[in-house]
Write a protein that binds this DNA or RNA. Sequence first.
DNA 1: TTGTTATTTGGCAATATGGCCAATATTTGA
DNA 2: TCAAATATTGGCCATATTGCCAAATAACAA
Lengths: 107, 107
Amino acid sequence: MNDLEKRRSEGRAAILKALAHPSRVLIVEKLSAKPYCVCELTAMVGADTSTVSKHLSILRNAGIVSDSKQGTSVYYSLEAPCLLRLLDCVESVIQQNLQRQLSYLKA
Amino acid sequence: MNDLEKRRSEGRAAILKALAHPSRVLIVEKLSAKPYCVCELTAMVGADTSTVSKHLSILRNAGIVSDSKQGTSVYYSLEAPCLLRLLDCVESVIQQNLQRQLSYLKA
DNA sequence: TTGTTATTTGGCAATATGGCCAATATTTGA
DNA sequence: TCAAATATTGGCCATATTGCCAAATAACAA
C-alpha cells in the first residue's frame, strides 16, 4: 500500500466509521426526510441528549450533516444525498446474506 | 426508535462497521478488480498475515467477500458489486468537504 | 512420514469508542 | 435580572477494536 493509497483508504474509512453506528444510521435515515432538532432526534434515538449530541458532532465532523441554530434549538440537515443510495447498497448486502442463509437451510 | 427500526439500524451499522477500516477499504477496492489470495493482499496492505486474515474474516462474516481454497492458498472475492458505488458516494462526501474547506479559505 | 508453505486462531497490550452524569454555555421570555 | 429550555463539553468507566507474536491447522511435495 503506497502513501497515496494509504491516505485514500484512511479518508474513506473515516467517513464510513462516522456512519457505522446504529444511532447514527438511524439519524441519517430520519434526516433524509427533513431536518430535525437535537431534542427530536434524541426522542427518536432513545438515548441521553448528550449522547445524541456527540453522535451528531461525529456526523458533522465527517461532513455528513450540517447544523443551524434556531432559537434555543439546533436543527440538523443531511448534507450528502447519495448516502441514501449507500444505505440501499448496505441493505442489499443484508438481503443477499439472508438469501444465502435460506439456501443453506433448504440444503 | 421502535424495535423494527432498532434492528434495522443495527444490521446496517454492522455492515458499515465491517467496511470502516483503512485496510478493509483497500482490500475491497483491490478485490473489485479480481480475486486475490491472503498472501497477495497481505503484501498490498503491508501488515502481518494474521492481521490481514482477521480483516478478511470480518469482511467474510459481513457477507462482503467470499473465500475459496486453492491448494494451500485461500482466494477471496468481492461478493457485493454495489459496494464500489458505495465507495464512490463516500468519495463524493470527501470531495464536497474539500470544496467547503476551499470556499472557507477564499472567504 | 516429514518438511514447507499458506492460513487461521488464541492471547495479550495498547488504544478507541460509547454512554451516562454533571457542569457549562446560549437563547428566550417572564 | 432570573429562570427555563436546549445543546454542548468534560469526566469517568465499561467495552470493543486493532495489531503483533506464537501456536495450531491444512494442503502439498519430497
